[in-house]
Design a binder for these strands. Sequence first.
DNA 1: GCCCTGGCTGAACGTTTCCTGAGAAGAGCC
DNA 2: GGCTCTTCTCAGGAAACGTTCAGCCAGGGC
Lengths: 234, 234
Amino acid sequence: MDVLDRVEARLLVVDDEPNIRELLSASLRLSGFEVMTAVDGREAVQFAERIRPDLVVLDVMLPDMDGFAVAGRLRELGGQMPVLFLTARDATDDKVTGLKVADDYVTKPFSLEEVLARIRAVLRRTRGDLDLPVRLRVGDLELDEEAHQVWKAGEVVRLSPTEFKLLHYLMVNTGRVLSKAQILDHVWNYDFGGDAGVVESYVSYLRRKIDTVEPRLIHTLRGVGYVLRPPQGD
Amino acid sequence: MDVLDRVEARLLVVDDEPNIRELLSASLRLSGFEVMTAVDGREAVQFAERIRPDLVVLDVMLPDMDGFAVAGRLRELGGQMPVLFLTARDATDDKVTGLKVADDYVTKPFSLEEVLARIRAVLRRTRGDLDLPVRLRVGDLELDEEAHQVWKAGEVVRLSPTEFKLLHYLMVNTGRVLSKAQILDHVWNYDFGGDAGVVESYVSYLRRKIDTVEPRLIHTLRGVGYVLRPPQGD
DNA sequence: GCCCTGGCTGAACGTTTCCTGAGAAGAGCC
DNA sequence: GGCTCTTCTCAGGAAACGTTCAGCCAGGGC
């Protein structure tokens, strides 16, 4: 509910691949956004004109027109309508390089955590609450998104990228049980084929680094999943 | 956040190439500016009259009229409205002399760092806050933008142009992780086709020149990017 | 108490990522 | 035109990282 009432915003997701489109719209909806989808540039511009989304998630490679063109059209509609681009990781097209400079882009295959973080960042920026540093706190645990840094009881803790993403996901969902499948879906890239065993490994790594003393923050719910719980709430 | 709240200003970007227009407007917006765009001289003058931007970024080669004509018209509108010209690197001499009318100019292909630095400089000048020297400081590291000079522990350090731009970008974003892609996109020209390996090389050069002793300022976050962090923050 | 299932963790592996030195190509300067 | 400085590429080696797996442990049902 933390997330749910914080971000009420209308999004437009544009991608011609049905898988990605559904994956994104479903999980964005779950995160509390109002989501519409479009399959190509023409439709995107049409919908955008009608529904005036707060942000557009836009695949760079569309069947009818490229991301640049769509972004340009959207801009012509007036009203700030920021764009978050989706692009292939190894894109070398100069068209794409141009887009990438916009900074708000995510490369495929992405993890949902990445996309969500970006969307929130862009919305935060356009809404003007610029300066609040994005610092999550649970008990004596602190996480700074921009600095990509974590403190436990005031001490800096070094985390690998995956450890960091996992902890971030847990912290954003403090007090909510997350199944291993959910964690896998959010923290790992959507094309990850492996099994949920990795999650166990990474929870183990995390505990070793940030949860060695009482009161424990990361709790296992047998057969259900994991929760991060603030101290006294136990 | 440093940059973001320092420069709130309204810009008008005029270029007929959609790529450049989008590239510029997107990244200027990300840097905290309010941006409008125009595709030719006529539109530029129209918009400028209406919205009264604080600065106009103006391509010299426009389909309908040349940049200087546009600049003249803008001047006629009255009210100081400085112009930053964009011009091809191999512009002939008479054109370059023409640029003297301009408040400043940047040659294509540019890097975003260049454009941003110029815009800030021009705005600073026209606003009259001349005396604040633009000096960035992180630990015992100092960088003077105008003098284009760097000191480490009080000693002047000689940096190549690219090294300087890289360090500048890192310092402006102190405490924020920057991915290699981001660095590439900001410090290198937008048409640079090479890979992110250069960034590694230049970080290596920089470290050798300004970061050989503890406490280190430039940190590698494996799989994420680089950060410049002030000493005690570790 | 015993068994079964699910979870924990250490070890091992292959892979990725990064750092650095060396060198070729180019730009700018006398 | 030759010199230096700069930029970029490449490749080797080292370290960190992600993933899998197997053995062990703990909880819960019977």
